[in-house]
Design a protein around this nucleic acid. Sequence first.
DNA 1: AGAGTGACTCATA
DNA 2: CTATGAGCCACTC
Length: 104
Amino acid sequence: MEKRKDNFFNKIYDVVKQIPEGYVATYGQVAQMVGTRDARKIGWALHGNKNLNVPCHRVVNKEGKVALNFAFDGWEEQRKRLMDERVHFIDEMHVNLERHLWER
DNA sequence: AGAGTGACTCATA
DNA sequence: CTATGAGCCACTC
């Protein structure tokens, strides 16, 4: 039972896993890498994600803002994980993309 | 086939 | 900063 869903998830996970520590990527960036323009699907996929293998906390929106509905334990958990990797926040919800944006 | 939904992005005001 | 509308594409009903 192969669904496109699994195919997309696989690709997305593969890309996200490549994000090094201390760096973050945007949904749009990941979308381009998996061959789509729709950043929503990235969020959709990660929301359905239960894999702790995937560092979803390193994926943020284009402003560097974290997801309110973060799957693990809410945005506060995501922020904590990022700060644990030396990622700087400009406020409670935004990371410093100027310093930490992952450029493939 | 159509309508609703979504961890997004962009343009306008 | 907020709000609205459009674009986007796969999922679910």
